[in-house]
Nucleic acid binder design. Structure first.
Lengths: 242, 242
DNA sequence: CGATCAATTGAGCCGTCTCAATTTGGGTGG
DNA sequence: CCACCCAAATTGAGACGGCTCAATTGATCG
């Protein structure tokens, strides 16, 4: 299922990675980033649809997404699934497993993807020589907490159209950060996955896409999305009542 | 609003705190816990209804709850609020602010409470002498991520009765960990707050309490709760479909 | 070019919300 | 100490949003 790729001297490292402005090295001084190069000793290729890790797996590392995209999902005793995140390049996956060193969720690739292995024990060793590394990692964990809290807000306080609007804007903004267009992108997940993530059925999601398109907010062609009226979409997602 | 309490030599410290099995020192060796005593230099008393911190505040510390209970809530531009957690003694509050060193939420006391101030800079200094401290703090942050993901699962995948059942069981279990009865307890939050937290209206919550009581699962007298049929309640919350 | 899966669209139902009226309990001042 | 007041909680009736079930269309891929 997984193909491990040793990082050879000529491979891209943190110090030469285009994602370093977003990923683990975010905000670190150049000479510290160079030291990070020792940390990433291998990468893993994850084919579309297969798992980077599964619930119950032993945790020895977290993973920085280098290319592609993945989803994380919880699964309860009855097999019911809840998607808790769609992750893009530069984002870190697997931090929920650090509590008991056991994965609490599944991580499944939405497309052929590649992740950098960040071994926790290596990071602890390295942190002795890079004082800011621990702070940096704390920041990334805090970011995940905030992300999850935002999702709670979306699920708990918004109606369906607001949730989808917020979802699209969030995706748009993260893609823009990666240098892609904020207005035009391809969804890597199905209507069903979006629905699961947002606490809606796939039919409701589909209807909302159609409605947004009818109202001139977006163009949709299957998974191809073009945001036409960002302003109104923001109004929908955010504060239209206050 | 807040009263700071310096920790004097005769005050309770981490090494003598009854919560050390649950809180920051969880799983640390005794001699390491003793070193933690230097970390907590002050505590803060938070009267019922007042804020430990507010959205936008500068973050220099996180807080371990020593007594009482608090809620954390997000607030969007229009003033709409979403409660993201009810926190009990031994739990850490404020970790979502570590991303930008700015509070992303409000923390409000549900009753007169007291928290231990865990200064981040002090913790970083101390971590040099306590190798496991960083791992420990990572674990606590991971726990918060898991907690939030569970809430997402509750909001996204459960119907109202399941949400409330899961809520009661979660509370019961955490109170039991603190040495209180798992079957009988007093809710420190209103129906409205429970509803907000669970993505329901206060009326729905009230009706569910009445129904659970009618069905013999619990006894309710205002905020006094007695769990009568833990088994059935578990069936409701968990997997009754698989 | 057919097979298969994803997405769209429709009709009817159910759960939860909204609005409104009472009841209960706790706190306060006469 | 009791009466009053206000906030919190309960309960009911009706409306509506999102779900379920079902049929159809549209992509994608051997």
């Amino acid at each position: 299922m997984q193909k491990k790729i040793p990082v050879t001297p000529d491979s891209t490292r943190c110090s030469t990675c285009m994602l370093s402005e977003i990923c683990l090295p975010l905000g670190m001084a150049r000479h510290d980033v160079a030291k990070l190069d020792e940390l990433i000793k291998e990468r893993i290729r994850v084919p579309k649809g297969s798992a980077l890790f599964r619930l119950g797996d032993k945790v020895e590392a977290v993973y920085g997404i280098r290319s592609g995209s993945l989803k994380t999902q919880l699964e309860d005793a009855s097999g019911h699934v809840q998607i808790t995140g769609f992750l893009l390049p530069g984002e870190i996956i697997g931090m929920d497993g650090l509590l008991e060193n056991t994965q609490q969720s599944h991580a499944i690739a939405l497309e052929d993807s590649e992740v950098c292995v960040i071994r926790i024990d290596e990071m602890d060793h390295l942190a002795a020589h890079i004082p800011v590394l621990n702070q940096q990692f704390r920041r990334l964990m805090s970011k995940e907490i905030n992300r999850s809290h935002q999702l709670v807000m979306s699920l708990g306080a918004m109606r369906s159209e607001q949730r989808l609007a917020a979802f699209l804007l969030n995706l748009s903004q993260r893609l823009a950060t990666l240098g892609y267009s904020a207005n035009e992108f391809v969804l890597r997940m199905s209507r069903e996955e979006i629905g699961n993530y947002l606490g809606l059925t796939l039919e409701t999601v589909s209807r909302l896409f159609s409605r947004f398109a009818r109202e001139g907010l977006i163009h949709v062609q299957q998974r191809q999305v073009l945001i036409v009226d960002m302003q109104t979409l923001r109004g929908l997602a955010g504060t239209d009542c206050g």
